Computed example of a mutant assay.
Amino acid sequence: MQTEKLFRVGEYIELFNQMTGQALPCGAIYQSHGLAKHIQKRHAGENEHLNDIPAIIQNPDYIGKHPKEKNSIELVKVLHQNVMVCIKLDLDENYLFVASVFEITEAKLRNRINSGRLKRIDN
């Protein structure tokens, strides 16, 4: 793992595996210094949420997994908007990292809850 390009932003806990039916490794979640560039390119104007990532990981309101993305989870926190943090497992080096962060609409949040893709976390 190239640690000079990564920094720790949270902890993956066993509850996340229990709620999503996965077996991802518990422990540190990392973020690359290049995530800001990804956000600017893919989710323009949402860089403000980079600072929210640790709080969202520590205290999400909803958790789920993308049906087509194995070895990943989605965490959602209801702030002034609904903010989703996508976390993936690097299979080569076996560490979890933040792949993206962006806002989702209330309609998307409700749709994903109703479909079972997202589940409420009672903290």
Rank of each mutant, 00 (worst) to 15 (best):
P60C: 06
R117V: 11
S115A: 13
M84N: 01
N94C: 11
Q2W: 05
K41M: 12
G116I: 10
N59K: 15
V83A: 02
G45R: 08
K77G: 08
R120Q: 11
C86W: 01
D122T: 11
Y62H: 05
K108N: 14
H66I: 12
K88H: 13
A28D: 14
Q40A: 12
L35M: 04
R112A: 03
L96I: 06
T105V: 06
E106M: 01
S72Y: 01
N47Y: 00
A23E: 13
I121Q: 04
R42K: 15
I53Y: 00
I39Y: 01
K119L: 08
L109R: 05
I73G: 02
I104N: 04
I87L: 10
Q58N: 08
P25D: 00
I57F: 00
Q81T: 15
V76R: 00
N59L: 12
V78T: 13
L50W: 00
D122A: 09
T105S: 15
E46R: 12
D52Q: 07
H43W: 06
N59F: 04
I113K: 13
K41A: 11
A23N: 15
I13T: 07
K37R: 14
Q18F: 12
Q2A: 08
L75P: 03
N82S: 07
N59S: 12
V76H: 03
H80K: 08
S115G: 11
A44Q: 13
A99D: 10
E106F: 05
I104S: 04
L89F: 02
C26K: 15
R117L: 14
I73V: 08
K68T: 11
N82H: 05
L15V: 14
K65G: 06
R8D: 10
F97K: 09
M19F: 07
L50K: 10
L109A: 04
R110E: 15
T3H: 07
G45D: 03
T105C: 11
